[in-house]
Design a protein around this nucleic acid. Sequence first.
DNA 1: TTGGATGGGTGGTTCAACCAATAATAGATT
DNA 2: AATCTATTATTGGTTGAACCACCCATCCAA
Lengths: 238, 238
Amino acid sequence: MKKKKLVLEKPLTRSRLHEEIVSIIQKQIMSGAIVPGGKLPTEREMAETFDVNRATVREALRKLENLDLIEIRHGDGLYVKNYLESGNFDLIKAALHNNGSGEILINILDARRYIVPQIAYIAAEQRMPEDIDELKTVVFDTDLDMLEKDIRVHQLIARSTHNLLCTIGLNFFNQIFRDYGHLYFDDRRNAERSNIFHHDIYEAIKNQKPDDARRIMREVLIYAEEAVKRELPNATKG
Amino acid sequence: MKKKKLVLEKPLTRSRLHEEIVSIIQKQIMSGAIVPGGKLPTEREMAETFDVNRATVREALRKLENLDLIEIRHGDGLYVKNYLESGNFDLIKAALHNNGSGEILINILDARRYIVPQIAYIAAEQRMPEDIDELKTVVFDTDLDMLEKDIRVHQLIARSTHNLLCTIGLNFFNQIFRDYGHLYFDDRRNAERSNIFHHDIYEAIKNQKPDDARRIMREVLIYAEEAVKRELPNATKG
DNA sequence: TTGGATGGGTGGTTCAACCAATAATAGATT
DNA sequence: AATCTATTATTGGTTGAACCACCCATCCAA
């Protein structure tokens, strides 16, 4: 048995200055403090405001641009976009962390319940023999940490769809789940539940039973969802 | 009637240097020329290789980091990640443009067919009176450019779900579709088909008929999908 | 009225340093 | 010999000042 290392999630990536700036501006935009279409201060002004170098501001702006939160016009200025129309998925991760009420988490769980079972369905349809082999080695590996194993099972299911969008879409959910996963698998019953799930869905996909795969995935997600919601005092709303 | 402006998509955004660098490195990573886990040259080396300043390289690296293509470790170096495990949705847009065969586009259309009808379903369930008002003004606006109108209808449907993930998820599809939309709506039959769709789904959502909304959405997507596939000579594979 | 030159402000890039974290090395300790 | 520790080289992070490229408002001349 491997010795279990104490793994610190969030590997102490000391916030870089430009990241702090991103965070500040992002909050201002998403809170509505700056209206879409409005202009941000110039790079030089921001550099002075935050008391950093302009190059640091620019690195922050690069990220805000990638998040589709702002539009940068050479020779003109920095414009705030409407993130409800242009925002991308990384925004959701950010929103999740800035949003204490758990409303966003509920949104994510809802969406996951609709999407991920469908991915399992497609996987059972499209899987190749190699996919089954890979899945098998993970499912029957008893040495793996349960969280790591669960994530890899999901990854392999997604990859079995042979659809890049499904693969990356499932990554999205995994990345979010990873932060909360340890809490979940600390409960022995949950870990056992997942173990059963891994074997069941492996069989369904191997035997090309899309409906079974979808049902099995849906059931485990609902189970996990309820466990998560029990931990959320604010998640009273249906 | 408004005068129709000639709108140039791709507003001639002259490639900025750091964007070209992003493009080069991104292709190298996604083509497998650099193996996941491998190291990239140092910032200083790259600056020399590309004959640009280090600050410019760093802006490019910022974007690659946001794409989850690389991991930057202070004092250590730049590591290539496995984008199949960590990649985000912006990668798909990039892949779509670099992928001539249309395989990725098929992937996207497939996924859209599964996901977007479900969004319509949720919208019909969750919509508030204000959502209907907004949707109405757009659906019955005869001045709007058809592409713009269609995008806004989809946006408002997504927003009616009151689920941030759905809203942003639909943005993703819209952003991709926008580039191809003009071709589609140039065909008068397609435009008329969409007009009917707008009115039908408006009624379904207004009257809170989730099943109808889902079916209507699904039908129009399949219609559009077939039109797109007819234009794709390479999309022979089912 | 129109068209083109001009100047000020903005983002884009460069240069040359220095700061801060990491990993590899050499040396001291056990 | 193995292990710990201080040192050093390397690498990313930040800085300051300067200049280039672009947009726009203004003004002047045709």
